[in-house]
Amino acid sequence: MSEEIIIAGFGGQGVLSMGKILAYSGVMQDMEVSWMPSYGPEMRGGTANVSVILSDNRISSPILKEFDTAIILNQQSMDKFEDAIKPGGLLLYDGNGITRHPERTDIRVYRVDAAAEASKMESSKTFNMIVLGGYLKVKPLVSMENVMTGLKKSLPERHHKLLPLNEKAIIRGTEIVQKIQEV
């Protein structure tokens, strides 16, 4: 098994930490993992993306041109990465702020309206965990138990009181993700 993922959105949306939690969940499941961020001037408001690879085998290149899955959280990323998905691959996106919806017909398309859902939760910072939940529902590559251990390892101890809220958000994501198109 090998899953090559790009997660892309605005800085501040929790793109990098979502990738880190996913990667740590893979570590907990004894997979090989890599996490390669776009680093640089991307802070709040700019664009940010991270490539995550989960694999049963040794990972060669952490730099990729095509992905099995693209998790897309703003229009700029839709424009940039829709064409980078392998045929038959998965596009998961949040409809908030999207003006041009996915157009390809040879990929699986799922939608998770995480921004809208996060505003109903105790903290809107749960946004990225709702997206993660949506992804794990469509591709259950790592067990919920390992995701929670991964989350615990990624969060500094002073934030551990937020673990139950994050778990709730992940579960909420699994519930609200909707299928747009299968191939």
Binding site: W35, M36, P37, Y39
Partner: peptide
């Protein structure tokens, strides 16, 4: 280089 420095692995 910046790639190995910034990327995360096990």
């Amino acid at each position: 280089d910046g790639m190995i420095g910034q990327m995360m692995e096990k």
